[in-house]
Amino acid sequence: MNVLLEAAAVRHPAARRGAAAAVGPLSLGLDAGEQVAIIGPSGAGKTTLLLALACALRPTSGRVLLDGADPWALSAAALRQRRGQLFLAPQVPPLPPRQRVVTAVLAGRLPQMGLLTSLRNLLLPTDLATAHAALDHFDLADKLFDRVDRLSGGERQRVGLARALVARARLLLVDEPLSALDPARAGQAMQSLVDGARECGATLVCSMHDVPMALRHFPRVIGLREGAVQFDLPPQEVGPDRLQTLYHGHLEELQGPPPPELPVLEPTRPAVLHCR
């Protein structure tokens, strides 16, 4: 799905009427199938931007165009249909505690289901293989029939990501997908999400707290501060100086998992360094 923001300004969902915009005015374009990480300090407007892209917040000025159409200019029925092509994964997945994991995962397909099919799926999930395969990407296949309230916080977050993989959405919007995961799980989960989006041709936009992970997995990184784009670059051009400027006053948020240890070279083997 193509995304275009034309001088779009968006208020925080909890802001009072007439309050200043949390994002924008912002002009930005994303091509169909792109994978983009949005980084920035707390309060930068990352979540507000995702909500605007998900058609959950209407811009106070400007436009957000999805495949060239303004969703807020559509009829109510057409807007519901457009929202069915999107999937927003919040930082804390809204998983009913007594629900089984398989049902929670397959709920990602509810927008494509009719009323009777969705009710039947609550009682007797019909696509166990799809749910099992999605969970297996996140090492949770053995939790297929467990109840959600018996999972750890990190397991619940991975269930939310598995639900994103089965959603068949054309635009995946994921808010802080790694906040409850340890470094080893985080890397695996991020790779599974990126690979899954690529396989189905979906546009993927992630807000990321873990800056090293964003630079490692995304070909395009947008730095957001106070609702404005500070840079929009490939990861190899996002150096320490840019990051320190972006996180000025919030440098503690730049702490991420340490890079992997470099291999020890044999003394007799010449080493060639390539510097960018």
Rank of each mutant, 00 (worst) to 15 (best):
G160N: 09
L140P: 09
W72C: 15
E237W: 02
L273H: 04
A20T: 06
A169K: 00
G108D: 07
R100I: 10
T60R: 12
Q188F: 11
F231D: 08
G33E: 02
L224R: 01
P183E: 13
L246M: 07
H12N: 04
A44W: 07
V211M: 08
L251S: 13
P90N: 11
G108H: 02
Q191G: 14
S27C: 09
P260V: 03
A133V: 00
R269D: 14
L172W: 05
V105R: 04
L233S: 01
K143R: 14
P177L: 06
Q112G: 13
L193G: 03
V159M: 03
V205Q: 02
A7L: 11
M113N: 06
L161M: 14
L57V: 04
A14F: 09
A107C: 13
T130D: 08
R163G: 02
P219G: 15
D149E: 15
R80C: 15
I39P: 04
G239H: 13
A197H: 07
I38G: 00
P257L: 15
H274W: 06
D127E: 14
A14C: 12
A184S: 10
C55A: 15
V229T: 02
A19E: 09
G40L: 03
L171Y: 06
V166G: 00
R170Y: 06
L66E: 05
Q157L: 11
L66T: 00
H250E: 12
M1P: 01
P267G: 10
A134N: 03
A104Q: 06
Q35H: 11
E176N: 05
L224A: 09
P71C: 02
G29H: 01
R168P: 00
M208H: 08
L171M: 10
A37H: 01
V238Q: 03
P234L: 03
A20E: 07
H132C: 11
D136N: 07
V205R: 01
A78H: 15
A228G: 01
L79T: 14
D67F: 00
Q188E: 09
R220N: 13
T268E: 15
L215M: 12
P177A: 08
G201Q: 05
R225A: 10
H137E: 08
A69S: 13
A167V: 00
A186Q: 11
V23F: 03
L135R: 05
A89P: 06
